[in-house]
């Protein structure tokens, strides 16, 4: 199970199995989506499968998650999302009413994101062979700007920005599972990000290096990907990390660091440090970037590591987790 949590186990699995078998120059960078040359134009192309429990949660359901997730992967390529395909795997006996509800929220999310769902597929498997409903979405978008975005593009002096408070989605899911006695107003942050990304790219032409949506594994996992791919240090400030108090509360209760909690409507941007102020302004003018913050900088040393400067001036290592975290302290 640890292989799906977005941390090191997932990366090892991807590298050991898929890269080995499918290896090609477009796959090799392991970005969220691939950018394809199509004549004079460039298209972004991506696919994602969605499994979530519960299927319905405060702020959304698996339907809008499946639309926004793929829309966001295209947005992180700097693309304008255009068309989606959707595949469903349903467990025998899955209530039709639930399916209708999911389809309706997919339609609404697609309309909100300005994309059309143009093709699809549905399979039903025996009871017990799936957990209700799984959705796979595949998306195509148009890259209209001459951007070169990559996790390997960060350079010393760059600024690291997160587009809003961290961990809302993951915290909402954990509360919605109902394993513990807690009332919480937290709602998922699921949202389409290409609008706010456009605002950023327009404000900083040529100065945005990296865009990644902070889904599974949270912001910490994205930062580790950037540090590794760019062979640079990512140094973040504890005081600058945006987290809603109610999310802090849930994370505290469960002993989880919000840096590792999933978002579905937040992204990490690495931008030229000289233009960080302008980037922040552009983001904050957009409703989905209103809570954006500069959380740190890129340094040259120590390459490959993410460091957190604590309020007291200590420096902790923010590591890629191998699996479900068990306490390390004695």
């Amino acid at each position: 199970l640890a292989h799906g949590s977005g941390g090191k186990a997932t990366q090892t699995l991807i590298q050991a199995v898929f890269l080995e078998e499918f290896g090609n120059p477009l796959l090799a960078p392991l970005e969220d989506g691939a950018t394809l040359p199509l004549g004079d134009a460039r298209a972004a192309f991506t696919t994602d499968s969605f499994v979530v429990s519960p299927l319905f949660f405060p702020g959304g359901d698996i339907g809008d998650l499946a639309v926004n997730g793929t829309v966001n992967d295209l947005a992180m390529c700097g693309a304008r999302p255009a068309f989606l395909a959707a595949g469903f795997i349903l467990e025998e006996g899955f209530p039709v009413a639930d399916l209708r509800r999911i389809a309706a929220s997919m339609a609404a999310a697609a309309a909100a994101a300005g994309v059309s769902i143009v093709t699809g597929d549905t399979k039903v498997v025996q009871r017990g062979k799936a957990d209700g409903c799984y959705i796979t979405t595949t998306g195509v978008g148009v890259v209209e700007r001459p951007v070169e975005l990559s996790a390997s593009g960060a350079r010393p002096g760059d600024a690291v920005i997160v587009s809003g408070p961290m961990g809302d989605h993951g915290a909402a899911i954990m509360v919605a599972r109902g394993d513990f006695d807690l009332e919480s107003p937290i709602v998922s942050d699921t949202a389409p990000l290409h609008g706010v990304v456009s605002a950023l790219l327009d404000a900083l032409p040529g100065h945005v290096r990296t865009l990644r949506d902070a889904t599974r594994g949270g912001v910490a996992t994205i930062l580790n990907e950037v540090a590794t791919a760019s062979r640079a240090a990512v140094v973040i400030e504890e005081k600058a990390l945006p987290v809603r108090p109610e999310v802090t509360g849930v994370c505290e209760l469960l002993g989880i660091d919000p840096l590792y909690v999933a978002c579905e409507g937040r992204f990490v941007a690495v931008v030229d440090g000289a233009h960080a102020g302008r980037a922040l302004e552009a983001l904050r003018r957009h409703p989905l970037g209103a809570g954006a913050s500069i959380i740190g900088t890129i340094r040259d040393d120590p390459p490959g590591l993410v460091l957190l400067r604590t309020a007291f001036g200590g420096t902790r290592i923010v590591d890629l987790l191998v699996g479900d975290p068990l306490p390390r302290i004695c």
Partner: peptide
């Protein structure tokens, strides 16, 4: 926080790992 923590102890799961710790 007592009710939430007691419920967590009762429910188990990854956020409430099993231990035989003396400490």
């Amino acid at each position: 926080a007592w009710p939430a923590v007691s419920a967590l102890a009762a429910a188990g799961g990854p956020a409430a790992p099993v231990t035989s710790s003396a400490g």
